[in-house]
Amino acid sequence: MTEGVARFWREIPHRYRLLGSKCDSCGRVFFPPRVLCPECRRKGNISRVALSGKGKIYSYTIVKDGANGFERQVPYVIALIKLEEGPLVAGQIVDCSPDEVEVGKPVELVFRRVSEDGEEGIIYYGYKFRLAEEEN
């Protein structure tokens, strides 16, 4: 085990539950959460807000040359998802063939293993997305 655990541990609510933040002054929703609103800055008032995880694909890529620790998953899809609540979030789209992925398709949240600190270290769980059934 090579990594300290606190860096992962302190993000657990955000990575497990998509807990974001909101500026009550301007109404903007942030994910990942911010402690300072980039618009209102010190005049802003930040509170916590749970996000639905429902959104649409804003852009995507099919990674063939995977990041360290993701080699077994190639090809994998990384996308920017435009969440219902406004923010964009980066994450994997899983449980599909990469050629099913298109800009604009709806997705929903899933809970998965993201990576791990080697075979003996902590397992990093968190959010990913999968294609949702189109609502007609």
Binding site: E11, V63, A67, F70, I78, V103, S115, G126
Partner: peptide, 24 residues
Amino acid sequence: QEWEAFFGMTYASAYALMAKRHMH
């Protein structure tokens, strides 16, 4: 690191996201 690379985004895939959107 915490919100892009952590989830498997590489330097190339960040630009690939821009490329796909530019194409779109």
